[in-house]
C-alpha cells in the first residue's frame, strides 16, 4: 500500500517561541487509512495538521502528501486534499448552498458540479431543508456538518479534520462518523484529530498519540491495547500522557 502522508525528520517551532514544537518527527499514513491523531491540549495536533496542509511552513525535514513535498508544491497539493478546520470557517451571513457555491468555485469545480455536490451533500448530511437559510441561526451541530460538507466538495483523496465533532450532540456525531466511513470506503484517506476518544474507537483503524511534540504511540488500537494491557483508549491515554494538566 502506498503512502498518503510521509513525514520524515520534521522539526518545527513557532518564530516567537524558543521551544521546538516538533523535533525529528517521523509519521507515515497509508492511502485509504482512517488515521487519528490524539493528545492532550497543546500537544501539537493542530500544528501538525497545519503543517501537513501547508498552512505552516516547516524548517527542516520532509512532509509529503501523496508523494508531493508540501513545502514546494503548495498550490498543487491543494487539489488533492480537503480540510475541516476546528473553527466554523465559512460565511455565517450566507446560506449553506451559497457557502458551497463559493467554496466549490474556489475548489475548482464548475457550476454544474457545484450544484450536483450541493444537493448530494446537503441531503446526506440532513441539511437539504435549510439549504437557503442563513447559517447564522443554525445550531452548532448543523454548522459542523456544513464545515464538513464544504471540505469534501472537491472529492478529496485525503481529508484532514481538526476536531470535526467538537460540541455536537450524539446524533450529529453519529451522522458525521457514518458519513466519514462511507467516504473512506470510496477511497478517501481520513486524518483527524479529536479529544473524543470514543470516536477513535468508532472510526480509526490506527492512531498516533502525541505528547509535547513527540509521538508516544503509533499503532492499531488492538495492538496498543495488547501492548499496554489496557481495555480502553482513555486508560491508555492517561497511562501514556500522564494525569497532569497541560494548559
Amino acid at each position: 500500500m502506498s503512502l498518503a502522508i510521509s513525514i520524515e525528520d520534521l522539526s518545527f517551532g513557532y518564530k516567537d517561541q524558543q521551544r521546538k514544537n516538533f523535533s525529528h518527527l517521523h509519521l507515515h499514513i497509508q492511502k485509504g487509512e482512517r488515521f487519528g491523531i490524539f493528545g492532550p491540549n497543546g500537544a501539537g495536533k493542530t500544528t501538525l495538521m497545519n503543517i501537513m496542509t501547508g498552512l505552516l511552513e516547516y524548517e527542516s525535514g520532509s512532509v509529503k502528501l501523496l508523494g508531493h513535498e508540501v513545502k514546494n508544491n503548495k498550490k498543487n497539493i491543494t487539489k488533492l486534499f480537503g480540510f475541516v478546520p476546528q473553527d466554523f470557517s465559512f460565511y455565517h451571513e450566507l446560506s449553506p448552498a451559497e457557502n458551497m457555491e463559493f467554496f466549490g468555485a474556489w475548489a475548482g469545480l464548475n457550476k454544474k458540479q457545484i450544484q450536483r455536490k450541493i444537493t448530494e451533500l446537503l441531503t446526506v448530511l440532513g441539511l437539504e431543508d435549510v439549504r437557503n437559510k442563513p447559517v447564522q441561526k443554525f445550531s452548532g451541530g448543523m454548522k459542523r456538518r456544513i464545515n464538513l460538507a464544504i471540505a469534501v466538495m472537491n472529492e478529496p483523496q485525503v481529508l484532514f479534520m481538526d476536531e470535526p465533532t467538537v460540541g455536537v450532540d450524539v446524533q450529529t456525531r453519529n451522522a458525521i462518523i457514518e458519513y466519514l466511513k462511507e467516504l473512506n470506503k470510496k477511497g478517501t484517506t481520513l486524518v483527524y484529530t479529536s479529544h473524543q476518544l470514543s470516536e477513535a474507537e468508532q472510526l480509526c483503524e490506527r492512531i498516533a498519540l502525541i505528547d509535547e511534540g513527540k509521538i508516544v504511540a503509533n499503532d492499531t488500537l488492538i495492538n496498543l491495547y495488547k501492548e499496554h494491557q489496557q481495555d480502553g483508549l482513555e486508560k491508555l491515554f492517561l497511562e501514556l500522557t500522564g494525569k497532569e494538566f497541560r494548559d
Binding site: 496542509t53 501547508g54 498552512l55 498550490k75 498543487n76 491543494t78 487539489k79 486534499f81 480540510f83 478546520p85 476546528q86 473553527d87 466554523f88 470557517s89 465559512f90 460565511y91 455565517h92 467554496f103 468555485a105 474556489w106 475548489a107 475548482g108 464544504i150
Partner: peptide, 20 residues
C-alpha cells in the same frame, strides 16, 4: 470577520490565489 472565522485560512487550503 473573515480572519476571525478562519475563512481566510480555509481559502489558503484551496487551489485559488488569494489575489482573487
Amino acid at each position: 470577520r473573515e480572519k476571525q472565522s478562519g475563512s481566510f485560512t480555509r481559502l489558503r487550503t484551496l487551489p485559488t490565489s488569494f489575489a482573487v
